[in-house]
Design a protein around this nucleic acid. Structure first.
Lengths: 112, 112
DNA sequence: AATCTATACATAATAAATTTATGTATTATA
DNA sequence: TATAATACATAAATTTATTATGTATAGATT
């Protein structure tokens, strides 16, 4: 928590990239992984995560596999081919966003 | 137009930084300047800009001076002292955001 | 002269993303 | 046996921005 508003709009990119790296992950795992990688800086809330996963699935970017761990269930998400293409697109957008913001914020930095 | 969702949450930072650099600007000027600096990449809409300026003013970060140009009016905005402190804070948040996103997106990059 | 574009402000309705709150249930730990 | 962690989920409220609309002046084009 205490995430700056800048993270708004970044969640989809984060989810896609993690799935691109790890092949298969379940929701709760994603929140833990993000917290760990960012040293606690970024906490993904469940209220944001689950709807996003459902949306990505509905868009055809993710496939789901439900696995039972004892009596509890996990939903493993995995990128589809289209999801991989979307990931690449989102990562390019992130790089572009950073470049644009640098141009705006650092006067010495000019857009190509 | 066609701004990626990543820009959501960045508008306040952009406005503050431009005012920090230029001392005094009016709304329409800000939209033009942003479009110019980003080579047309980022178009700030009036529906987003004006409410944001009003909010920053209400928060005590901006002072306004109304100037008549012929029969038309301009509202020049200027950072208050508190606004300058807020700008510094927002710029630090941006740097931190970029670092965090790099850590998430580039596995070779680790958080300090 | 008439029309279009740019300048300059503004707000209202809608949409989208996220936070906060709440709910259910299992499993591990103190 | 109580608490924390795991694991899913949704609903209400909030925030931010988009799209649409409105008013009006000034400059440029036909």
């Amino acid at each position: 928590m205490k995430n700056s508003e800048l993270y708004k709009g970044s969640l989809i990119t984060i989810i896609l990239k993690l799935l691109n790296e790890h092949d298969k992950m379940y929701g709760y795992e994603i929140t833990k992984r993000v917290k760990e990688i960012t040293k606690g800086e970024l906490q993904i809330t469940e209220g944001a995560l689950y709807p996003s996963l459902h949306k990505l699935q509905a868009q055809g970017f993710l496939d789901v596999e439900v696995v039972n761990i004892g009596k509890r269930q996990r939903k493993y998400y995995e990128l589809t081919e289209e999801g991989t293409r979307e990931t690449i697109k989102k990562l390019a957008e992130l790089e572009h966003y950073i470049k644009t913001m640098r141009a705006l914020v650092n006067p010495k930095f000019r857009m190509a």
